[in-house]
Design a protein around this nucleic acid. Structure first.
Length: 619
DNA sequence: GCTAGATGTCATTCC
DNA sequence: AAGGAATGACATCTA
C-alpha cells in the first residue's frame, strides 16, 4: 500500500506535469517558440527528469511485475521473445487475462504480428467488455501494454479528458506500428468510424480544447467576421473532422500502448507527439504545416534521435503527422486573433521571442490607429505599423490572407461574403496547399530565391495584409493584386469603400504589381548577368582561339616568306645579261606586274622605269 | 558594428 | 489616358 501511495503521489505529480506540458504543447502549436531550439531543449530536460522518476518507480514495482509476468501464460506459450520485461501496473490485477496476453503480444519487439483474424477477434472480444465494464479495464489495456510507462500515467490524459462511459475509445490495443498491416489499418479505421467512437473522440477533443482555454469558433457569437481566416470547423459533425480527430487520439493511445517503440521520455501523449511535431514546424515555415509529406521527410532526415519514432509513426494508419498540433495551433491562432489586447495575459508562458513580438506595441497601436481611424490613413502613417515586421499577427494573418486561389475570383464579390462565413471556406484551402504568389508567378526559379528568403518574403508580404485588415478591406491581398483590371474594377465597384480604403487598395495593388515586377526585373538582371558572363567566357575562348590562329598564321607567313626569298634568290641567280654576267642583287630586283609578267628592274634607275620602258625587258 | 546580399518600395519612364 | 511593365535608386532586414 505504501508503495502504491508513493506511486500515486508521483503519478499525481506527473498529472500536473502532463497537464502543464499538455497545455504548453497545445499552446506551442500556434506559436513560434515551438521552433525555438532552447525551448525544445527545455522540454527534453523535463522529459529526462521524468524518465529518471520513471526508473525509480519501475524499481519499486519490479517485484510485483515479476509476479504478474509469471502469470502471463500465453506469453510463455507463444515463446515470443520479450526484450524488456514490461513493468505492469498495480491495476493490472484487474485486467482480464485475455487483454493481458493481447498487449503482451502486441508489445513484443521481435514477436510476429498478430494475424488479421486474430486481431479482429481480439478487438471483437475487447469491445463488448469495454461497453459493459468500467473504465479501469480500458485503462488497463493500455497500462499493460506500456511496460516502460508508469501504469497510471498514460491513462491520465484519457481519464482526465474523457468521460468515463465513453472511454472505451482509445483502449483497443493498438498493434506495434512497425508491423501494422493494411488489414489492421482498415480494422482500426472501421473501429474508429463507429459512432460511439466518434462521439467519444469528439467529446475528448472538445474537452482537450477547453483545457487550453482557446475558444472554438463553433458558437456563432465567436465567429467574428474579422477573424474567420482560420476556420476551425466543428469537430463533431463532419467526416473529415473525424478523420482528423480519430488518428490523433489513436496516436495518443498508440503512444501509450506501445512504449517499446517510443523512447521512455515520451510520457504524455501530447508530450510524446508535440515536440516531434513542433520540430517539424520550423519557425520560418508555418506554411509547412500544409505540406505534411515534406514535413515527414524533413523530420526523418533531421531528427536522428527521433528516427525510430518517426519510422514508427510512419506505419500508423491514417497517420496524422501533425493533426493534434495543427488543430490546436489553428484554434490557438483563432483565439490569438480574437484576443490581441489581452494576449499576453492569456499566453503568459511564452518564453522566446514571441513574447516581445506580441507586445502591445506590436499589435494594439496599429490596430487602434488604423482600425478605428480609417480616414486617417496614409502610407507614411502605416509605416509605423510596418516597423513591426516580427508581429505574429502580421505573419500569420498574411499567410492566410495571401493565399490566392482561382476560386477567389468567383468568390471575390460580396462584402458580406468576404467578411462572413464564406471566407471560412475560402481560407480553408490555403491550409491544404499554400502557394506563394511569387511561386505562382514562376519566380521561384530565381537564382536568389531560397527557402528562408521565401518565408521572409511572406513575412514582409504581411504588411499590406495587415493594413488591409486594419482598414477592414473586404478583399484579400491576393485578390487585390492578382485580379485582372476588369475584375478588379468590378470588385471595387461592388463595394462602397471610403477614400482611405480605396487609396490603400490601389497602393496594395501597385506595390504588389511592382513587387512582382521588381522580382522579374532582378531575375532578368541576374539572367542577363549570367548570360553576359557566358558570353564573356565564349568570347575569351574565341579570343584565345584567334590568337592561336594568328600566331599560326604568322608562323606560316614567315615560312612562306623564307620560301619566297629563297626562290627569289634562286631565280635571280639564274639571270644573265648579254655578256653572260649575273646581275647584282644590289643593282637589280625582280618585280611582278599585275598581268603576271616578271621584270628585272634596276634599283637605281627605278624612277626611270616608267618613262623608259625600253630598259625593261620581260624575262 | 560593419557588410553583403536579398527584398520591398518609390519614382520615373516606356509600352 | 490609364494601367502595367521595367528599372534605377534607396531603405530595410538578415546572416
Amino acid at each position: 500500500m505504501i508503495m502504491e501511495m508513493e506511486v500515486m503521489h508521483s503519478v499525481q505529480q506527473d498529472m500536473e506535469l502532463i497537464d502543464i506540458l499538455w497545455k504548453q504543447d497545445i499552446d506551442l502549436g500556434a506559436r513560434r517558440e515551438v521552433y525555438d531550439y532552447n525551448h525544445r531543449q527545455k522540454e527534453h530536460e523535463l522529459r529526462r527528469q521524468r524518465e529518471l522518476e520513471e526508473e525509480k518507480r519501475q524499481h519499486l514495482v519490479l517485484e510485483q511485475e515479476k509476479a504478474l509476468l509469471a502469470q502471463l501464460e500465453l506469453d510463455e506459450e507463444t515463446g515470443e521473445y520479450i526484450p524488456r520485461p514490461p513493468p505492469s501496473a498495480p491495476l493490472q490485477s484487474a485486467v482480464a487475462p485475455l487483454e493481458v496476453t493481447q498487449n503482451v503480444s502486441f508489445t513484443e519487439e521481435n514477436g510476429d504480428a498478430m494475424s488479421f483474424d486474430e486481431c479482429l477477434q481480439l478487438l471483437a472480444e475487447t469491445f463488448p467488455v469495454e461497453e459493459t465494464e468500467n473504465t479501469s479495464v480500458c485503462l488497463d489495456t493500455t497500462v499493460v501494454s506500456a511496460p516502460m510507462m508508469p501504469p497510471e500515467q498514460p491513462a491520465l490524459p484519457l481519464a482526465t479528458l474523457s468521460p468515463g462511459p465513453l472511454l472505451p475509445t482509445p483502449s483497443p490495443p493498438p498493434p506495434p506500428p512497425q508491423r501494422m498491416s493494411l488489414d489492421l489499418e482498415q480494422a482500426w479505421m472501421e473501429l474508429l468510424s463507429l459512432p460511439e467512437l466518434q462521439q467519444c473522440l469528439s467529446m475528448q477533443m472538445e474537452d482537450t480544447l477547453e483545457t487550453t482555454t482557446y475558444p472554438l469558433p463553433n458558437s456563432p457569437e465567436e465567429q467574428n467576421p474579422n477573424y474567420t481566416f482560420y476556420p476551425m470547423t466543428d469537430l463533431t459533425d463532419s467526416e473529415p473532422n473525424i478523420l482528423n480527430v480519430c488518428p490523433a487520439e489513436f496516436m495518443n493511445t498508440f503512444d501509450v500502448s506501445v512504449p517499446s517503440m517510443v523512447p521512455p521520455d515520451n510520457l504524455s501523449p501530447m508530450k510524446a507527439k508535440a515536440p516531434q511535431l513542433n520540430d517539424k514546424f520550423p519557425a520560418e515555415s508555418f506554411c509547412d504545416i500544409f505540406y505534411p509529406n515534406a514535413i515527414l521527410e524533413e523530420s526523418s532526415g533531421q531528427h536522428g534521435l527521433e528516427v525510430n519514432e518517426s519510422n514508427t509513426m510512419s506505419d500508423i494508419p491514417n497517420k496524422p503527422p501533425f493533426t493534434p498540433v495543427d488543430i490546436y495551433s489553428l484554434s490557438a491562432r483563432d483565439a490569438f486573433d480574437r484576443s490581441k489586447e489581452n494576449l499576453t495575459a492569456e499566453l503568459p508562458d511564452s518564453d522566446s521571442g514571441i513574447s516581445s513580438n506580441i507586445s502591445p506595441n506590436a499589435s494594439s497601436p496599429g490596430k487602434s490607429l488604423y482600425g478605428d481611424e480609417s480616414f486617417g490613413y496614409s502610407d507614411s502613417d502605416m509605416e509605423e505599423m510596418d516597423h513591426n515586421p516580427g508581429s505574429v499577427e502580421s505573419d500569420y494573418s498574411e499567410m492566410f490572407l495571401l493565399n490566392f486561389q482561382p476560386d477567389d475570383l468567383q468568390r471575390a464579390i460580396p462584402l458580406s461574403a468576404q467578411m462572413g462565413q464564406p471566407q471560412q471556406q475560402q481560407e480553408k484551402k490555403p491550409k491544404q496547399h499554400k502557394t506563394d504568389p511569387a511561386e505562382e508567378n514562376g519566380h521561384n526559379n530565381a537564382p536568389f530565391t531560397k527557402d528562408k528568403q521565401k518565408k521572409r518574403s511572406e513575412v514582409r508580404l504581411s504588411r499590406d495584409g495587415q493594413r488591409a485588415k486594419a482598414l477592414k478591406i473586404p478583399f484579400t491581398v491576393d485578390m487585390i493584386i492578382n485580379l485582372p483590371v476588369d475584375d478588379f474594377n468590378e470588385m471595387m465597384s461592388k463595394h462602397q469603400l471610403n477614400e482611405a480604403q480605396l487609396a490603400l487598395v490601389r497602393d496594395i495593388r501597385r506595390r504588389g504589381k511592382n513587387k512582382v515586377a521588381a522580382q522579374n526585373c532582378r531575375k532578368r538582371k541576374m539572367e542577363n548577368i549570367v548570360g553576359l558572363e557566358s558570353n564573356l567566357d565564349s568570347l575569351k575562348d574565341e579570343k584565345a582561339r584567334l590568337l592561336e590562329e594568328k600566331s599560326q598564321n604568322i608562323t606560316n607567313l614567315k615560312e612562306m616568306k623564307q620560301q619566297l626569298n629563297s626562290l627569289y634568290l634562286e631565280v635571280f641567280s639564274m639571270l644573265r645579261d648579254e655578256k653572260g654576267n649575273s646581275y647584282s642583287p644590289s643593282d637589280y630586283s625582280l618585280q611582278q606586274s599585275t598581268d603576271g609578267n616578271v621584270f628585272l628592274v634596276p634599283r637605281i634607275k627605278k624612277t626611270f622605269i616608267k618613262s623608259e620602258d625600253s630598259v625593261l625587258s620581260p624575262l
